[in-house]
Design a protein around this nucleic acid. Structure first.
Lengths: 247, 247
DNA sequence: TATAGTTGTCTATATCAATAGACAAATTTC
DNA sequence: GAAATTTGTCTATTGATATAGACAACTATA
């Protein structure tokens, strides 16, 4: 975003056209290339990045395919408007309230649910015995019809029997938890990382292969500190940034 | 980390061997492949990922080059131990204190410094006039001799004249700010994103091309709310995770 | 010591990625 | 209408990527 653009690296397993496509995306994100304006001509981009014009064309073709750019013969190549959502993370983060003002419609879609024995990691996070039954929800957050998050969530199956159908009905974790007498809860811990999206995320988030996802692993607790929810969420880095607020 | 592994994607600009190398790295991070133990044999990995054995060998060769794996003819390929640092982010995050217990030695190296006019973004963050002089520091955080962060930091040049030499001497932002009468400060805001490392980050962080960096953009303020520092930090996602604490 | 299992090396072939040059087609500007 | 600018298409060449098969070299173990 800030700072000098690096140069292109060769024979590292990532093709030049993909690297240049990423650079153009960066340029758009950083305001280097303005939305709704023309990109510099292909010949100029080729000179700037030190590659052949055809290589630049491959990069542009990929971005046209992704819906980021639009090329018009004789006129130029234009940046379509697409802004990044700023997703707040804090002690009282809620999916729908956090995106107010940035979107007009948002909800969480339940993709699938299942009951399974708790792994060691999940058991520790939820404070239950390893192997105890937990409910796993696979969900997708959507804002204005576009996917903005993909999460896997675990609940203690004993305490939250039926939370899967509650989620399917309400489209909201907060509303579902209310049915179990939980009117307020806090985010206890969050660990953040990033990686390339796997095939599942690619499909669910409508991403192109090679896309990056931000990953948060969080534990939510009741006001008196009882863990109720363990979740791993994936956010497409090209469409979402995480804004850390009071945790 | 959690969830089913996705399948390999073809002709997306990222070579198969690079994708498989990334998958193996993920497998190590998630505990799928244990440290100090043998990886499954090449033929088995090839079957699992649906590619030729030679392609798996290319991926392994790259990871051997990166120091992640060690191959021994006739015996197998072994995972070398290398754990991810967990870097805390919160209101009082300090580089050295945050990593206590995980490392024995850490400091910040000053790579370069310069004075430049403030861009609009930096001016707004620091509460000064656009174009006013700011000091830019390029630094690298090191723990046990390995680079763990790469940051670009801006200070108001008028108020913090000489902070570059202070940084070079002390190797610490906290200690440098003390010389300007600032004994305590808070992290006011943090915005988080992720992207591929650029050439500069690759070199400074000793990464292989295609690596992912976590990016934080933060503003630090004095106790009475005056902004003093604007910083963009990059963390290698393969070696560092960010643990969000009280902000 | 013989055998099975594993990594290392070699040859061969097909496809993808990148460069190079030339010219066509569409748009804007003079 | 002519010229300049820009994207689109075509041919050709080179090197990297991926697959396939065979066999050598080394290790562990029965």
């Amino acid at each position: 975003m800030i700072g000098l653009a690096g140069s292109i690296e060769r024979r590292n397993g990532v093709s030049l056209w993909r690297q240049i496509a990423d650079r153009i995306l960066q340029g758009i994100a950083s305001g280097d290339f303005l939305e709704n304006a023309a990109l510099p001509p292909e010949v100029m981009l080729a000179a700037r990045y030190g590659v052949n014009r055809h290589t630049v064309r491959s990069a542009i073709a990929a971005l046209v395919q992704e819906g980021v750019l639009k090329a018009e013969q004789g006129r130029g190549t234009f940046v379509l408007s697409r802004k990044r959502l700023s997703y707040p993370i804090g002690a009282r983060t809620r999916f729908s309230t956090g995106l107010q003002g940035q979107t007009t419609e948002r909800h969480i879609a339940l993709l699938s649910s299942s009951t399974e024995p708790a792994s060691r990691r999940i058991a520790e996070a939820l404070g239950i015995a390893k192997g105890a039954a937990v409910i796993r929800l696979e969900t997708r957050g959507e804002a204005d019809g576009h996917p903005v998050s993909r999460a896997t969530t675990w609940f203690d199956a004993e305490r939250f029997t039926g939370i899967d159908s509650a989620m399917a009905e309400t489209g909201s974790i907060t509303a579902s938890l209310k049915r179990f007498g939980i009117n307020d809860y806090l985010r206890h811990s969050t660990v953040l990382s990033a990686r390339h999206a796997d095939a599942d995320d690619l499909a669910a988030l409508d991403l192109q292969p090679g896309a990056i996802v931000l990953v948060t692993v969080a534990v939510n607790v009741t006001l008196d500190g009882q863990p109720i929810q363990f979740a791993e969420s994936r956010f497409p880095a090209e469409r979402v940034e995480l804004r850390l607020s009071a945790l």
